[in-house]
């Protein structure tokens, strides 16, 4: 198949489709949860466009309900989204030739779900070419755009449905537990090596011990302790 902008764009959408099946319930749950956390419907919807990061939107809704100070919320969002720095470093070589507008737009669309299919696509080309020159002249960034926009629109629509349903779902459904369950599903596949397992265990245990800390600082101290413990375990090898 020719690498035309159109083919790449549609290819990106196609590659994203299976992931969207999982994103729709996630977005709906976010919408319902944000509403039940006391965030107004219009702000809940806007957050999906302004922040556009599922996990941190969930955490923000949870912290908002607990009347957490703004700087603690922002620090938590920073830590939760730090992993996107990894994606940024990983796609950077492939989009270096693009204009600043393209770089900005693609970075805005750089979520977990888009990254997963985009990096697979780029690697397929870089393995064939051995260097990046074929990609630098290519139209693969349209694949990135297609995947990113497919996810973006699905996220907005499923948020809207969630906000609508959220006003119907009874309180007794313990919707907040879906956050924990989603994170369990996200974290389990990443526990492949010892440093990651140690980071997870230490992060969790310190967060439990630190739960009594003021300002919801238990989460942050747990995350930090987990990362340090994991690094220490890397060093021992």
């Amino acid at each position: 198949m020719n690498i035309t902008p159109r083919n790449e764009f549609l290819g990106g959408i196609r590659a994203e489709l299976p992931i969207l099946v999982g994103v729709i319930p996630f977005g709906m749950i976010y919408g319902a949860l944000a509403l039940s956390a006391g965030i107004p419907a219009n702000a809940s919807q806007a957050m999906s466009a302004i922040v556009f990061a599922g996990s941190s939107q969930f955490v923000m809704a949870q912290l908002w309900a607990q009347e957490t100070p703004i700087f603690v919320m922002l620090a938590t969002v920073f830590v939760v989204n730090l992993r996107h720095g990894l994606y940024s470093a990983s796609v950077a070589p492939y989009i270096q030739h693009l204009s600043i507008t393209w770089k900005g737009a693609l970075s805005y669309l750089l979520t977990d779900e888009a990254y997963a299919v985009v990096i697979t696509h780029y690697r397929k080309f870089s393995q064939d070419a051995k260097d990046l020159s074929s990609i630098i002249t290519g139209k693969q960034h349209f694949f990135f755009l297609g995947a990113g926009l497919a996810l973006w629109s699905t996220w907005q629509i499923s948020t809207a449905i969630g906000i609508f349903l959220g006003s119907i779902i009874p309180e007794s459904w313990s919707l907040d537990f879906t956050l924990t369950l989603t994170f369990i599903a996200l974290v389990m596949p990443s526990l492949k090596r010892k440093p990651e397992i140690i980071a997870a265990l230490v992060g969790g245990i310190v967060a439990v011990i630190g739960a009594a800390l003021p300002l919801k600082l238990g989460l942050l101290s747990g995350a930090l302790a987990g990362i340090l413990a994991g690094l220490w375990s890397e060093r021992l090898k």
Partner: peptide, 12 residues
């Protein structure tokens, strides 16, 4: 190490 550390700090 950020994802395992952060997510378990929320899960536990």
């Amino acid at each position: 190490l950020v994802p395992p550390a952060v997510f378990s700090a929320i899960i536990f």
